[in-house]
């Protein structure tokens, strides 16, 4: 589904990613962990197509297409979803209106009929309930006055509405208490399926107790230094990130 090859990225001349290789197969969950400043969020932003990043080298192939060549909205319509670490507020635009436009843009792209207001509302109610949010949230302006937890749950709600093929979760656990964390994780788990993949970016192992990954990668200084299964996350938890650079034995990472 997703192949990242030797990806080098800089911002304002400063190198952030120094040769990332990553393969994501359909239906798998990959956790990308790493200390602050290791390039985790840059990776998420580059996949989603945010402006301001210079691709110096390498390629990203998504379902056989050159992902880096697509505009962000095309990536979204093709099924790439980014759950933002810091979702922005858009005053005066209701979540309902926004999501309906988004869902219909995606449906149109897929050659499907657009949803009527009634159909949309029915679908939205169905998706929002399990996230412990009230349908009234739909009438509020996008993220305006939302608590940290509400913002993150809204991201998961949007993901559920858009049914992406590749979901990138950028530090979705940050700022969540344990109850909110469980709700968010349940939301993600309920979306796991054989043709949907997840890249879960997190600083802490905590989230991975609830969203159990198939693979764990450790990003350090712009490179994936270590890959393994879910036990790697536990090891990181107990030993911290410091040991990676000290006695790391580089492992083959491609092809997991």
């Amino acid at each position: 589904m997703l192949q990242i090859r030797n990806l080098h990225v800089s911002i304002d001349g400063q190198k952030i990613l120094r040769g990332i290789d990553l393969d994501v197969q359909p239906g798998t969950v990959h956790a990308v962990m790493g200390p602050n400043g290791s390039g985790k969020s840059t990776l998420a932003s580059v996949l989603a197509g945010r402006d301001g990043y210079e691709i110096e080298e390498g390629s990203v192939t998504y379902n056989g297409q050159d992902l880096l060549d697509m505009d962000p909205e095309i990536r979204a319509r093709e099924g790439v979803f980014l759950a933002f670490q810091y979702p922005v507020e858009v005053p005066g635009v209701t979540t309902m209106y926004f999501m309906r436009e988004a869902v219909n843009a995606v449906r149109k792209h897929r050659g499907e009929e657009e949803l009527s207001a009634g159909e949309f509302l029915k679908l939205a109610r169905q998706k929002i309930g399990p996230l412990g949010m009230d349908a009234d949230m739909l009438k509020r302006a996008i993220n305006e006055g939302f608590s940290g937890g509400e913002k993150k749950r809204s991201e998961i709600f949007q993901m559920a509405m858009l049914e992406p093929k590749l979901a990138v979760l950028d530090e979705t656990d940050s700022g969540l208490d344990i109850d909110a964390l469980k709700i968010v994780a349940d939301g993600v788990n309920s979306l796991r399926s054989a043709d949907r993949s997840f890249v879960v970016i997190t600083h802490y192992q905590r989230l991975l107790n609830y969203i159990v990954p198939d693979y764990v990668h450790v990003l350090s200084d712009g490179k994936i230094e270590l890959s393994g299964d879910k036990t790697l996350a536990l090891e990181l938890e107990s030993r911290g990130y410091g040991w990676i650079n000290d006695d790391v034995v580089p492992q083959a990472v491609a092809g997991v």
Binding site: R50, F84, V90, F98, V106, I142
Partner: peptide
């Protein structure tokens, strides 16, 4: 950031 957020949901 706002424009990108909306772009990321498929809106041009």
């Amino acid at each position: 950031d706002q424009i990108f957020y909306l772009n990321q949901r498929g809106i041009e």
